[in-house]
Each structure stands twice: as C-alpha cells, then as structure tokens.
Amino acid sequence: MRISLAILAATLATAAIAMPTRATADECDNAQGGQAGLNECYDKLSKKSDAELNRLYKEIETRLKDDPDTKKLLVTAQRSWVAFRNAECNFQAAGSSGGSVAPMIYSMCLDGLTKSRVEDFKGYLQCEEGDLSCPVPAAN
C-alpha cells in the first residue's frame, strides 16, 4: 500500500512539473535577452523556491529538536529527495541536452519539483496535535 502511494505521489509530482505553473510563466514572460534571459529568469525562480524549501526545512528541524531519531529520518529523506530531484531534472532536460534551452528546462523542473516539496513541508508544519500520520509535532 505504501509503495503504491509513493508511486502515485511521484507520478503526480512529475506530471505537475511537466509544464510551468502560470504564475511561474508570467514571471518570466518579460525576460530580456532571448533564451539567455529566459534561462536566467527560470534559474532565479528555482533558487527562490529552493530558499523557501530551506526555510521550511529549518523550521521542521527546529520542531524535531527533541526527537533525534525522526530528525535523522528527515535528513535522510531530504538528501534522498534532493538526489531524486536532480536526477529527474537531468532526465527531463536530456532531450534538450547541448541546446540553449536546456538550462531553462532543467530550472523549470527544479522549480516545479521544489514547489511540490514546499507544499509537502507546509503540510507537515500544519499538523494538528495527536495526528499520528504526521511526523512533525504541532507548533506550541
């Protein structure tokens, strides 16, 4: 059952990043400098998403300060997720490898997967006290 849910979640996350969200596309609609400008814009967006992810990660770590075993599981999960994200984005950008659009495709993928992980983290941070399906304690 858990494997099926994990496969479903990965499939949905991958499908969600196949095209940029409209908000993301809107932010880069007026990028200057042709493809180089688009590459730069999408790179900035992915870095912005990554900064938000890191902020939420630190908040989760703080909530887990009294639970070193679960904190260790978080670290392991996040390292594995980062490896997956990077490998997935390399795979998605493979069709444009060597082309000027490749950095944009890669950054769009990073941004999409990272935003999905951000939503996961936000969910963890909104767990209610006593929710045994949530690994992160409720805020005090």
Rank of each mutant, 00 (worst) to 15 (best):
L5S: 09
L5N: 12
L5V: 10
A6T: 12
I7H: 12
L8V: 14
L12S: 11
A13W: 00
T14C: 03
A15E: 08
A16L: 15
A16T: 13
M19A: 15
T21V: 11
A23Y: 07
A25Q: 15
A25W: 06
E27I: 10
E27G: 11
C28K: 07
Q32H: 07
G33V: 05
G34W: 02
Q35A: 07
G37P: 08
N39T: 08
N39E: 09
L45V: 14
S46I: 09
S46G: 02
K47N: 12
K47Q: 13
K48Y: 01
K48F: 06
S49N: 08
D50Y: 00
L53S: 02
L53Y: 01
N54Y: 03
N54S: 06
Y57V: 04
E61F: 02
R63I: 03
L64K: 03
K65I: 06
D67Y: 01
D69V: 12
D69C: 01
T70N: 05
K71M: 10
T76K: 10
S80P: 05
W81Y: 11
W81G: 11
V82M: 14
V82E: 14
F84S: 13
R85I: 07
N86K: 14
N86D: 15
E88G: 10
E88K: 14
C89R: 00
N90G: 14
F91D: 12
F91N: 14
Q92V: 13
Q92T: 13
A93W: 02
A94L: 09
A94G: 08
A94F: 06
G95N: 13
S96T: 12
S97P: 01
G98T: 11
G98N: 12
S100P: 12
V101T: 13
A102I: 03
M104Q: 04
I105P: 00
I105T: 04
C109F: 02
L110F: 06
L110W: 07
D111T: 05
G112R: 00
G112I: 03
L113I: 01
T114R: 00
K115C: 03
S116W: 14
R117F: 04
R117N: 09
V118F: 02
V118R: 04
V118N: 10
E119C: 09
D120W: 03
F121R: 08
G123C: 08
Y124V: 06
Y124P: 04
L125S: 04
Q126C: 10
Q126W: 06
C127H: 10
D131I: 08
P135Y: 04
V136S: 06
